[in-house]
Design a protein around this nucleic acid. Structure first.
Length: 359
DNA sequence: GCGGAGATGGACC
DNA sequence: CTAACGGGTCCATCTCCGC
């Protein structure tokens, strides 16, 4: 089995900011997504290693992160996320990866799987991975952690083993040993909910999971998830790299204030729809399904969607449909109060037909 | 049974 | 007030419906 690499850029957003502003070099950094409500309303998008020491992590409310920073008495920099900038840095680094690899699958802005041209051994793969790390450091000033393993699942977990600036090689014969002692939620794709359900089975570790029969897992989790859990426990992962096709495109925002007045949400929804349609137009895609997304004040996400028989590209059609769906939702949920709204396009027709401006 | 559509939930970054 | 809370994507499951 030829080795697969998983490249993970360390504390990527924080590292991008430090690179842009060297004064931050020795400071703990927190990257935030602000909602625009209060001064600290928002969530932590990413925390640099310095900030993680104080228990600050992605997904945490900014206000809580501020409390922790204060308690620690540490001067931590809180910065607003600049996704466009991170995207640019990402593109350049992915370019380096593409030069060093035979095939690359970008998994997110800061992660990629890669497969190497004609490597004969894991030793050789290790050397190539070292070289890739060095190039990223020399050319972009960022460190990466790399996992090398027989499949994507193990490569991903291996890149996580030694961070930052790590390199972990797991040869085929070492997979079992690598997984030994791990808790189930350390398996990529097994989150808190699944871990909790497994605990009811008396399963906490990967070794314990491996002892559960495939049939029982399927019975408890359904066909796909059951089989997938069974495979994961054995360190059996996908070996094929393929760039995943985008299948949906959404925009979501937090309202100035909670409301259930359609008129207050309408301009926001129309703007979000415009953004989505613009993106589709840039790509030359048409949509056939429109979804209205609502996050209520209790943070519950609700959706309403409608599909058309043929793919559309009209902005008005999209806006009108989204607003109708939103209206339906409000009518069916007289107690719901809306905090955030969003729209989504899916069911793409990426085929030939381009917009008129292309002719 | 099998498909598509629609709604929801889990997971990850 | 009994906590606080972004934006985005993918995948799986369940239900319903027409066939």
């Amino acid at each position: 089995m030829p080795p697969i690499l998983h490249i993970d850029l360390d504390a990527f957003f924080a590292s991008c900011e430090k690179k842009r502003n060297p004064e931050l070099e020795d400071q703990a950094v927190v990257i935030c997504m602000y909602s625009g409500r209060g001064k600290d309303s928002g969530a932590v998008s990413a925390a640099g290693y310095g900030a993680r020491e104080y228990g600050i992590h992605a997904g945490m409310p900014v206000s809580e992160a501020r409390n922790r920073a204060e308690q620690a008495g540490e001067d931590i920099a809180f910065l607003a996320a600049d996704k466009d900038f991170y995207g640019e840095v990402s593109r350049r680094i992915m370019g380096i990866v593409e030069e060093e690899a035979a095939e690359v699958e970008k998994a997110s802005v800061d992660e990629a799987y890669a497969d190497l041209p004609a490597v004969g051994s894991y030793q050789e793969a290790r050397e190539r991975a070292e070289r890739l790390k060095q190039r990223i450091k020399a050319e972009e000033g960022l460190t990466a952690s790399i996992g090398v393993a027989p499949n994507k699942l193990v490569a991903k977990m291996a890149s996580d083993r030694d961070k930052p600036d790590g390199l972990t090689v797991v040869e085929p014969g070492e997979v079992e040993e690598f997984l030994t002692g791990m808790e189930v939620d350390e398996l990529h794709g097994v989150g808190p909910k699944t871990a909790e359900r497994l605990e009811e089975f008396g399963v906490r570790t990967v070794e314990e999971l491996r002892e559960v029969s495939r049939a029982r897992l399927v019975e408890a989790f359904g066909e796909k998830r059951g089989v997938s859990l069974h495979r994961k426990a054995a360190g059996n992962g996908e070996t094929k790299l393929e760039e995943q096709e985008q299948e949906q495109l959404s925009r979501l925002t937090t309202l100035g204030e909670n409301t259930r007045e359609l008129e207050e949400m309408a301009p926001v929804v129309e703007q979000l729809a415009e953004d989505v349609i613009q993106s589709l137009e840039d790509r030359g895609w048409r949509y056939s399904t429109v979804t209205a997304l609502v996050i209520t004040t209790d943070m519950d996400m609700r959706t309403r969607s409608r599909s058309f028989k043929t793919a559309e590209r009209s902005l008005e059609r999209f806006q009108d449909t989204a607003l109708e769906l939103l209206e339906d939702f409000l009518q069916e949920n007289p107690d719901a109060v809306v905090r955030r709204v969003g729209v989504r396009a899916s069911g793409f027709d990426k085929g030939g037909q381009r917009s008129l401006s292309d002719f």
